[in-house]
Amino acid sequence: MIKLIKISKSFNSQKVLDELDLNIDPEKITVIIGQSGGGKSVLLKHIIGLIRPDSGQIIIDKIDITNLNDKKLNEVRKKFGMLFQDAALFDSMTVGENVAFPLNEHTRLSRKEINKIVNEKLNLVGLENVIHKMPSELSGGMRKRVGLARAIALDPKIVLFDEPTTGLDPIMRESVDELIVATQKRTKATFVIISHDIESTFTIAHKVAMLYQGKIVAVGTPDEIRSSNNSFVKRFIRDLRI
């Protein structure tokens, strides 16, 4: 589904990604874990074409997006939904308008049909009666849910998550994790999550990829990673737990 081949990227001569290779399987939840500031967000932005690599190739759904122009890239991006760290809701719009935004932009549906989809998606993320509220009136967890509703509004094949559980209390964290798993089951989309939260990673991931010093150092199911005898992986997990 998503294939990264020998991706390198430097900012101001500091190497953030170093010939990184990664294969992401379709219709699965893949979690990329790594330390804060370890280039996880940069990696995610490469996948959706917000940042172009210095070298290497990015292949999304059999299309090489490395050198695509903006117009064609926009076509590819319609396969994506993305949930940002702080949800990135448009604060000049109501919750309903936020979820309807991609539908208004990229479909020719009537207002009625759009309203129907908006309600459906909000129900899916467990939110009701907030459709006319402004994002500023919502709690952090609710904003994430709205963000997810917006991300899946166009039924994308791939949904990207930037640190979905950061900044939430443990109870909210658990409910967001449950929501991600449930949503993935419903939509059958490919979920790519970046996180430094080792606990929730092991609960939700089908596959875990470890990012360390610009490279993917280990890939496997949560069980494989957990029971790994590799001392490096062990230390990595211990470090993240702290």
Binding site: I48, M82, D86, F90, S92
Partner: peptide, 21 residues
């Protein structure tokens, strides 16, 4: 102020990911 806020809260990136320039 408005666009600056949108930039720092990643709303502008969000627009990009939703294929809106």
């Amino acid at each position: 102020a408005e666009l600056g806020t949108m930039k720092v809260t990643e709303q502008i990136d969000a627009l990009n990911t939703m294929s809106v320039n």
